[in-house]
């Protein structure tokens, strides 16, 4: 197990290096000189000179990438063009908001989706299964920003059950949770449907396998068969999909954060793009990449915990 985890983290490191290098190259390939690209049109000559020196633009590209990584590892992502605060500090200030939003969204939708999917598979073709199926397909089709807008209008503006904007008072957990409800509803809703469909399909497949028949032939209680023997296999594909789906979750978070005026990576990216604050854009994208790589890695590790064959590399 440990060797699997180490291998997988090694792979994640390689992926991160490749991704960050491409990010670096993309910024360099934008027409115009990288310094004005990165600093934007409002940079002063002093800023340009400082950045040019720090980035070592006279050196070969490979050395530049090396320097970029060296800076990155030291936690130096450059300076915000306007406030002159370190980018890392700005981005790290926003990351927790987005992470909490995404994690809460995917957790509730996974729990509900797995429950509904299992129910549907066990009571296949029942009224409940059909209703779940219809509802799932309908919510899958609705994008997060539509749910955001409507839930904002209905639950925040009209019914006033939940606050419309912000993330709640710092340090006040209840208030923050209250502010999380609508945004995480917006992000998680389509996932409930998606996961329910996925779990239903794989549950049906697993329940038809030989080992389930064996378990029944030994008179094991149906509860144990479903939850102890089948579910563990049936959620493997879902874990992978959630890991890879982090990209979609991040982009859904962007829209949602904007609709609800929540702080977070999404709002930061949009704000910095509109003001052409490139160092901050780079920093935010870098963190999104890290979150994505971490989530796929984590999904693989969870699957390896669930399935010994993956651990053994079979």
């Amino acid at each position: 197990m440990l060797s699997f985890i180490f291998k997988r983290i090694g792979l994640a490191a390689v992926i991160t290096i490749l991704a960050v290098s491409s990010l670096f190259l993309i910024v360099h390939m934008i027409p115009g000189d990288p310094v004005s690209t990165m600093l934007g049109p409002r940079a002063t000559p002093e800023m340009r000179a400082a950045l040019e020196a720090r980035m070592g633009l006279d050196k070969p590209l490979i050395a530049q990438i090396g320097l970029f990584f060296a800076n990155m590892l030291r936690g130096d992502l450059g300076m915000d063009v306007f406030s002159n605060r370190p980018v890392s500090e700005i981005v790290l200030g926003q990351v927790p908001y987005t992470l909490v939003l995404i994690l809460v969204s995917i957790t509730w939708s996974a729990v509900l989706g797995i429950a509904l999917g299992s129910y549907s598979a066990i009571h296949r073709n029942s009224l409940g299964d059909r209703l779940t199926g219809i509802l799932s397909v309908s919510v899958i089709a609705v994008p997060a920003f539509v749910v955001s807008l409507y839930s904002l209008l209905i639950f925040a503006v009209k019914l006033q059950w939940f606050p419309a904007i912000g993330a709640g008072d710092a340090g006040n957990w209840g208030d923050q949770l209250h502010h999380l409800v609508l945004p995480s509803l917006a992000i998680g809703l389509s996932w409930v449907g998606y996961i329910a469909r996925l779990v239903r399909a794989s549950m049906l497949e697993v329940m038809g396998e030989g080992h389930i028949r064996t378990a029944r032939a030994f008179g094991l209680p149906e509860r144990q068969i479903v939850f102890g023997y089948a579910l563990r296999l049936a959620i493997l594909p879902t874990v992978t999909v959630i890991g890879v789906g982090m990209g979609f979750l991040l982009s859904a978070a962007v829209f949602t954060e904007i609709v609800f005026s929540r702080p977070g990576l999404g709002k930061l990216v949009i704000d910095s793009i509109t003001t052409r604050n490139y160092p901050v854009v780079m920093g935010s994208v870098l963190f999104s990449t890290l979150i994505f790589v971490a989530s796929t890695t984590l999904a693989d590790i969870v699957n390896a915990i669930l399935d010994p064959r993956i651990r053994a590399g079979k």
Binding site: G210, H211, T214, R216, A217, F218, G219, L306, D307, R309
Partner: peptide
């Protein structure tokens, strides 16, 4: 009755056991 008075052995041994649980766990569960 199943697994106590009447027991089964199935055709395909590769499909008979749960792939993600140890043999010991499955033998104890029954």
């Amino acid at each position: 009755l199943r697994g106590t008075q009447i027991s089964m052995v199935f055709q395909d041994p590769m499909q008979t056991h749960n792939p993600v649980l140890t043999v010991g766990r499955q033998m104890m569960d029954i």
